[in-house]
Simulated scan of single mutants.
Amino acid sequence: MLNWMHAQGLPVPRPVAAHVHRSGPIYRADLILQQINKANDLHHILCASPLEASQWQNVGKTIARMHQAQIYHHDLNIHNLMQDEEGKIWLIDFDRCYKRHGTDWQPQNLARLKRSLEKESARTSPYYYQPDDFTCLLQGYHQQLNGNPHDKAAN
C-alpha cells in the first residue's frame, strides 16, 4: 500500500525494501524506507516553537489528501506527522493502515489527532499548541476537500 500511495504522489516516504518472515499465525515484517531529508516530527517542532497558521493549514491539506485517497491512518497522531526544511508535511508509520470506503470514519480520524495534540499539550511544557491551531488545520482540510484551486499546490 505504501508503494501505491507513493506512486499517487502522496507525501509518504518511498519504500525501498521489505521482508516478511512467517511462523504459523505470527509474522515479523521489516520495511526499509527512504529517509525524509531534514525533517522533524511535529511533536518535536511544537516543543520548540509554534507553527504558523499556514503550516497548520498545510497539515490539514495533507490529511485531506490521504482521506481523499481513502487512506485510513490507524495511528494518526502528532508524532506521525513530519515537516521537512521546505515546509512540506509528510505522514509516516503506516503499519496498520488500509484503504477504507466512505467518509464516516474521517471525523474520528481527525479527532484522534486532536486528542494527541491535547494530550501532549497537557504533559509537555513548553508546548506551542493552542485550540485555534486545530481550527486552522480544519480550514486547510476543508479547503483541500472542497477543491479550492489556490490551495492545491500547497503540498
Rank of each mutant, 00 (worst) to 15 (best):
N3D: 13
H142F: 13
I45Q: 04
Q144K: 02
H21N: 11
E52C: 07
Q130M: 10
G147F: 10
R112P: 01
A39I: 03
D151G: 05
R100P: 02
M66T: 05
A39V: 05
S23L: 12
R14Q: 13
L31R: 09
P149A: 13
D104R: 08
H67W: 08
Y98T: 06
N40S: 09
N37I: 05
D75S: 10
D95M: 07
W4F: 10
L145R: 03
V59H: 00
A64Q: 05
Q34W: 01
S23W: 06
Y27A: 14
D132H: 04
L117E: 03
Q57L: 12
I36G: 00
G140W: 01
I92T: 05
S125R: 13
H142N: 06
L91M: 06
F94K: 01
M66N: 03
Q34I: 00
A29W: 13
N3T: 08
N146H: 09
I92R: 04
C47F: 06
Y72Q: 01
H74G: 04
P50V: 03
H79T: 06
L137W: 13
C136P: 00
P25D: 12
D95A: 15
M1W: 06
A39S: 11
Q108G: 15
S49L: 14
K38Q: 09
F134E: 07
H43F: 14
A154E: 11
R115C: 07
Y127F: 15
A17E: 11
R14E: 08
I78H: 03
A18P: 00
E86K: 11
L91H: 01
A18K: 05
H44W: 12
D41L: 10
D151Q: 08
A154W: 14
A18N: 05
P107W: 12
S116C: 12
T62P: 02
L81A: 14
Y72M: 07
I71W: 02
R115P: 00
L113G: 02
K119P: 01
T103R: 13
R100D: 01
H74V: 07
G87T: 12
K114F: 09
Y128D: 01
S49G: 08
A122V: 05
V20M: 08
Q144M: 10
G24R: 11
A53S: 03
